[in-house]
């Protein structure tokens, strides 16, 4: 699980081009949106595509994303449970 969390942090930094953020700067329970990492709605769409492309998880209801993308920890748990690739 910790490997998946590190992988997610690396992917988020790379895909969302978070130039000033390092893997070590993101705690597993940091909020990804709002006061935490400060991601926005466009980032949420990027993350939905990433779930589909890299883990075979299709989110039919974008509202689900709000809960799944709460933190790296929550995201990793969801992926571990639902991934098809």
């Amino acid at each position: 699980m910790s490997e998946l969390r590190e992988e997610l942090k690396e992917k988020i930094i790379e895909q969302l081009n978070l130039e000033d953020v390092a893997v070590a700067d993101i705690a597993d329970d940091d909020s990804l949106f709002g006061d935490g990492l400060g991601l926005d709605s466009i980032d949420a769409l990027e993350l939905i595509v990433m779930l589909d492309k890299d883990y075979g998880i299709k989110l039919s209801d974008p509202k689900e994303g709000r809960k799944i993308f709460e933190s790296i920890g929550v995201m990793a748990d969801y992926i571990a449970e639902h991934r098809t690739k």
Partner: peptide, 13 residues
Amino acid sequence: DNNEEYLTPTSFI
């Protein structure tokens, strides 16, 4: 590359 799937919004915008 992705066979017309997995299109992300940022580069399009």
